[in-house]
């Protein structure tokens, strides 16, 4: 059944979606964007919680890598392992109950922004070593996100392929 479903992709629906018109933003966003850019320029010292988060992420990364990742001379293999770990955490986050506490929701949103930033860098990463380091950061952030979104579940090491 799954094979049939996989093949059941409809080119005419795809074409109809491509034919949908482009949309204009209801409001001009430039002033808000310019203000946001200015704010970023002024923010020379990160807020304390960002520094704390980075420290926690670094610590988690060090602990995580040293405890579960055997030394791997081959970046490609290690990247695959990190991708699997990241995917595992993504699934944990999806299964986690909805965050109800405001402080946790805010922390989760900020961690997700950091993850999005790592994702953007991953797109531009040229070498395997750089990719590996970014995947390490992503896994550390994902594990932290799990601990924020589902604190009752406790820490569980990811399954490594």
């Amino acid at each position: 059944m799954s094979t049939n479903i996989m093949n059941n992709q409809d080119p005419s629906i795809a074409q109809a979606l491509r034919d949908l018109p482009q949309l204009d933003c209801p409001q001009d966003q430039w002033q808000a964007i310019a203000a946001g850019l200015e704010k970023r320029k002024r923010r020379t010292v990160p807020a304390s919680w960002v520094r704390s988060l980075s420290a926690v992420a670094s610590l988690l990364l060090a602990v995580f890598i040293s405890s579960v990742m055997p030394p791997q001379p081959n970046d490609t293999v290690e990247i695959q392992q990190l991708m699997a770990a990241s995917q595992y955490y993504e699934q944990r986050v999806q299964l986690a109950p909805r965050v109800s506490r405001a402080d946790r929701a805010m922390a989760a949103a900020e961690i997700e922004d950091l993850i999005a930033s790592v994702d953007s860098q991953l797109v531009m990463a040229s070498g395997r070593t750089q990719q590996r380091l970014l995947w390490q950061q992503r896994v550390a952030l994902m594990s932290h996100l799990v601990s924020v979104t589902d604190p009752g579940a406790g820490f569980e090491q990811p399954r490594i392929l």
Binding site: C25, Q27, Q29, A32, I33, G36, L37, R40
Partner: peptide, 14 residues
């Protein structure tokens, strides 16, 4: 969607 637009340009341009 407008919130996303702002985030995208602030991230990209900075």
């Amino acid at each position: 969607a407008q919130e996303v637009v702002q985030d995208v340009f602030i991230k990209a341009l900075s």
